[in-house]
């Protein structure tokens, strides 16, 4: 089943960098751009939902516009040897032209209409 290619442009494309110290919330910004002529619905998923606060975690990106998603890593005991295994996924679908409610769009979505992009996470300590 050919999966629809992701139409959203993600910045960064592959890796979210979080720079410590991790004694307080550390925020990384994920910019989502919709270069198409259609509105696009998106939702953000993660393998570590209790560790991050994501705002907005879903919504509609109008055609030709961008939005910034704040990914807030909650404070934790940082271990430089522990490589972060956390991952994020931006799932998206072209919004129907007569879209009324977003929940309905996700419920009726056919698997082949869904697009997704995955990002890994990297934790870095402040320089010096």
């Amino acid at each position: 089943m050919a999966r629809q290619e992701q139409v959203l442009v993600l910045e960064p494309q592959q890796e979210l960098k979080f720079r410590g110290p991790f004694t307080d919330v550390v925020t990384a910004t994920l910019k989502l751009t919709n270069p198409t002529d259609r509105n696009v619905c998106f939702k953000v998923k993660t393998t570590a939902p209790r560790r991050y606060c994501v705002r907005p975690n879903s919504g509609v990106i109008d055609s030709g516009t961008s939005i910034n998603v704040s990914v807030m890593l909650q404070p934790f005991e940082y271990d430089p040897n522990e490589k972060s295994k956390h991952k994020f996924m931006v799932q998206s679908i072209l919004a129907p032209r007569d879209m009324t409610d977003m929940e309905g769009v996700w419920k009726e979505a056919k698997p082949e209409e869904l697009m997704d992009s995955k990002l890994r996470c990297a934790f870095e300590m402040p320089i010096g």
Binding site: K43, V44, K45, T46, T47, P49, R50, R51, Y52, C53, V54, R55, P56, N57, S58, Q74, K87, F88, M89, K118
Partner: peptide
């Protein structure tokens, strides 16, 4: 085999 990553909806409110 590597377990396929399990994704959950991200949370926007207080954790």
């Amino acid at each position: 085999a590597l377990s396929e990553d399990e994704f959950h909806d991200a949370v926007s409110g207080e954790l």
